[in-house]
Amino acid sequence: MSHPPKYWAVVPAAGIGRRMGAEVPKQYLPLGRQSVLEYTLDALYGEPRIQAVCVVHGADDPYWSSLQYTAPRPLIEAPGGAERSDSVLNGILNLLTQADPDDWVLVHDAARPCLRREDLAKLIDTLSDDDVGGLLAVPTRDTMKEVDEQGRVVATLDRSVIWHALTPQMFRLRALHDALAKARDAGRAVTDEASAIEAAGLRPKLVEGHADNLKITRPEDLALAGFYLQQQERL
């Protein structure tokens, strides 16, 4: 490769967030002085090594077009897909028109506005020379139970080897494209990028982040995200 790898970001933002019970998709809910998604974009653009951010949103998304977000570097758009993994794939395909296949892509949830600048820098620093890539994660602090279809406990898991997967998740553009396409063609559901990479026979590296990088999923999460942003002096 003729140049050092560059870093790009994809933000899948085509979901409607049914569990929030709000009329507005969760990524567009107001949080302090702007929307959840705008805080998420601020966090990514706060890392100077990220060349551009590709936001993947629904074609008929009225909320996206009403945002007045001013990006400090290129902001690219791509059409949303049926599932999150389809949206990510669309974003990667868009980036591959201008990026090197060996460049890195960081996929970050639209509803994770509290990503810390130091965690993002740590992820890039740790993985920049890695053969596979990896993701931010935190060790579980709770006792974890495995249950059967009736909701009864069948096992208590060893929490010393269990981590909560977070985002961003960082992999080479071509490698992630191929892993997601392979999973799609096989009809295999993937809930995050790392699981697609794992299914391709590779082992992503976990990089420890902070637990305040929460994903807004339920109504109570919005207030908690506001508290965390205030603690980070970003609200």
Rank of each mutant, 00 (worst) to 15 (best):
K6H: 11
K6G: 13
Y7D: 08
A9Q: 06
I16P: 03
M20H: 10
E23F: 11
P25A: 01
Q27K: 08
L29T: 01
P30C: 10
L31D: 06
Y39T: 05
A43E: 01
A43S: 12
I50F: 14
Q51L: 06
A52L: 02
C54E: 03
V55M: 12
A59G: 08
Y63A: 07
A71R: 05
P72I: 14
R73Q: 08
P74A: 12
L75Y: 02
S85W: 01
N90P: 10
N94C: 09
Q98H: 14
P101N: 03
P101W: 01
D103E: 10
L106E: 05
K122D: 05
I124F: 03
A137M: 00
R141C: 06
K145W: 14
V147S: 02
V153N: 06
D158Q: 08
S160I: 13
L166W: 00
M170N: 01
L176T: 06
H177E: 11
A183E: 04
V190D: 00
D192Y: 03
S195R: 04
A196I: 02
I197G: 01
E198K: 11
G201H: 06
L202R: 15
R203P: 07
G209S: 08
D212Y: 01
R218E: 11
P219A: 08
E220G: 04
L222Y: 00
Y228G: 07
Q230G: 06
